[in-house]
Nucleic acid binder design. Structure first.
Lengths: 141, 141
DNA sequence: GGCGCCACGTAGCCAAGGCTACACTTTATT
DNA sequence: AATAAAGTGTAGCCTTGGCTACGTGGCGCC
């Protein structure tokens, strides 16, 4: 195996899948907003992500095609079973990363920001290391 | 400050700037390849990132517009001063993140992959926490 | 010199995720 | 009920970063 091929492998995994990240962010937000407000509308997502409602409509259209979200015209957004599962998984990952950053001394605000960026890029193994270390550091006080 | 606005701030910073990530990856790669091979050509980048040479040409064209890279037709790619600085900064960040992941127990291969994904999303503060903890963990053996 | 191969450039296509402008539906207010 | 306001949809445009297909430049090897 050449060194060059190794590089390719790494980059292939990191550069792609932005669509998947967006999907995770969206279903997690839909879930959040439904818990907070009882229902989630396009505008709620537009406010949360600070984009136009048109952008939300487009992304939601894709997520409908992919079977994560359902909705009727002018109606609130609902998660499918697959959507709920993805949301739950995203939430768990998010929490582990956030708790970890806080445990190693990152401030609340910065941890919130960095978690958003990092959460989509940690493998299962790294996530497990994060969790273990979080407990360890908490144990030490 | 409303909770909603806080969410917007976070997401604005995390979702955008993929172009900036690409820029960092490219200048770092150009620097690497120049060190390894003496010069960097379009094809070298295409191999490293496992994309077509056309994609590289397009991205490089953008980076030229942005003043990070220069080259003459059919000639090798050169970094501008700004390009070299960005490459150096990217390399430092990359190293800190990689060393950190290794220090907390992530395997070489997984650390290499996750570093690629994480490095563009860690703030200065988090990076400093990473570095401190890396030293601490190494000190403990 | 000519041939072939590799590198590079260009044209033209695609999806994702941004936007504005405008039309329509739903809901709230008077 | 009528009107205003808020929410949603649609059309059409942009940039980034993917691609294939095809034409051109540069260089080594007969």
């Amino acid at each position: 195996m050449s060194q060059r091929q190794t590089f390719s492998d790494r980059h292939r995994r990191t550069r792609s899948d932005h669509a998947q990240e967006t999907a995770s962010d969206y279903v997690e937000a839909v879930d959040d907003i439904r818990i907070e407000h009882g229902r989630c509308r396009v505008t709620d997502l537009a406010k949360r992500f600070d984009v136009s409602h048109v952008t939300v409509t487009k992304v939601v259209a894709r997520l409908k095609r992919e079977g994560l979200i359902t909705s009727e015209p002018y109606g609130p957004l609902e998660l499918t079973e697959a959507g709920r599962q993805l949301a739950a998984k995203s939430r768990r990952t998010h929490q582990i990363v956030y708790d970890f950053l806080r445990a190693i001394g990152v401030s609340e605000q910065i941890a919130a920001i960095d978690t958003e960026g990092i959460e989509h890029h940690v493998s299962r193994q790294t996530l497990e290391c994060f969790r273990r270390l979080t407990e360890e550091l908490r144990g030490r006080g």
